[in-house]
Computed example of a mutant assay.
Amino acid sequence: MSTADAVFGALRPLVDGIAATFGRSCEVVLHDYRDPERSVAAVAGSVTGREVGDAMSEIGLRVLAAGAEARNDVGYLTRAQDGRLLKCTTLPLHDVDGTLIGALCINIDVSAINRATGVLSDLLGLSVVAETPVPTTDFSGELDQVLESLIERAERTNAVPASALGRHQRLELVRSLNDAGVFALRGAPARVAKRLGISRTGLYNDLATVKKDSEQP
């Protein structure tokens, strides 16, 4: 048995226990990054609707791209695509040699608490501080859908289809996809190039430009 298998074997029993401790508003997901397109190795709770065998979300892509440098991200806020506010914690898992092998993720639906806070503030006559914008995360379980969500955001921002983006706009999209960790996935360049209506060579040229720009002081 490999060290990674031992880590996942030890953590699987904890998934149900953690979810049960926090109740029905909590979901715990154990990811095995050795198979990114089927990374969900165990899940308890149904906050995001993930199932065993589903792919990682865009949050997982960023962790995967960070590799050995990935660190704990505790208590950050995001929104599910249906608008629910989630408080999340992502704990990267490393092998004995420091290699990133997966992540343990805890997602808590705090929408009801958020609504209750608003109601209580109204009843008590307290002013409500303007809510800081929270990013939306695609938890669809399909990497193609996660990639599509990232590209659709760029289309909405620029008000044109991805295939009609100008070079500057396309470079910005490629940069955002690279920052999101998309290109750490096997086969991602071909998928992205097809979606953008360019050749893989063209995409690799864009990636080279983006990386060169990021290295400049």
Rank of each mutant, 00 (worst) to 15 (best):
residue 134 V to Q: 09
residue 138 D to E: 11
residue 162 A to M: 05
residue 196 L to S: 05
residue 126 L to V: 02
residue 155 E to P: 05
residue 169 Q to R: 14
residue 163 S to C: 01
residue 155 E to K: 08
residue 142 E to N: 08
residue 124 L to V: 02
residue 138 D to F: 06
residue 164 A to H: 15
residue 158 N to V: 05
residue 181 G to K: 10
residue 160 V to H: 09
residue 152 E to G: 12
residue 162 A to N: 08
residue 183 F to S: 03
residue 117 T to V: 06
residue 117 T to K: 14
residue 131 E to S: 11
residue 181 G to F: 11
residue 185 L to A: 13
residue 167 R to E: 15
residue 158 N to F: 15
residue 126 L to M: 12
residue 182 V to M: 09
residue 170 R to P: 02
residue 143 L to M: 13
residue 160 V to I: 03
residue 144 D to T: 04
residue 123 L to Y: 04
residue 168 H to R: 14
residue 154 A to M: 09
residue 173 L to H: 03
residue 136 T to V: 14
residue 177 L to Q: 07
residue 148 E to T: 11
residue 138 D to I: 03
residue 128 V to C: 00
residue 179 D to Y: 01
residue 170 R to L: 12
residue 162 A to D: 12
residue 186 R to F: 14
residue 154 A to S: 15
residue 194 K to G: 05
residue 189 P to H: 08
residue 137 T to I: 09
residue 184 A to M: 07
residue 128 V to W: 00
residue 160 V to T: 09
residue 175 R to C: 05
residue 194 K to P: 00
residue 126 L to W: 07
residue 124 L to T: 05
residue 192 V to Y: 03
residue 189 P to K: 10
residue 136 T to H: 13
residue 126 L to Y: 12
residue 189 P to T: 13
residue 181 G to P: 01
residue 117 T to H: 10
residue 168 H to D: 15
residue 152 E to Q: 14
residue 166 G to C: 08
residue 170 R to C: 13
residue 153 R to W: 06
residue 184 A to F: 06
residue 194 K to L: 06
residue 145 Q to T: 03
residue 138 D to R: 10
residue 135 P to D: 13
residue 146 V to P: 04
residue 162 A to I: 04
residue 118 G to M: 04
residue 143 L to H: 06
residue 160 V to K: 13
residue 185 L to W: 02
residue 147 L to D: 00
residue 116 A to Q: 13
residue 166 G to E: 11
residue 126 L to C: 11
residue 147 L to P: 01
residue 176 S to P: 04
residue 156 R to N: 02
residue 154 A to C: 10
residue 130 A to V: 14
residue 181 G to C: 07
residue 168 H to F: 08
residue 193 A to I: 01
residue 140 S to C: 04
residue 183 F to R: 09
residue 156 R to E: 11
residue 144 D to Y: 02
residue 147 L to T: 00
residue 156 R to Y: 12
residue 182 V to W: 12
residue 175 R to I: 04
residue 149 S to V: 00
residue 152 E to A: 14
residue 183 F to M: 00
residue 165 L to N: 08
residue 189 P to Y: 06
residue 127 S to M: 04
residue 126 L to A: 08
residue 165 L to H: 10
residue 154 A to F: 08
residue 161 P to F: 09
residue 115 R to F: 04
residue 129 V to E: 15
residue 142 E to R: 15
residue 143 L to P: 01
residue 133 P to H: 15
residue 153 R to C: 05
residue 148 E to V: 00
residue 143 L to Y: 12
residue 170 R to K: 13
residue 190 A to N: 12
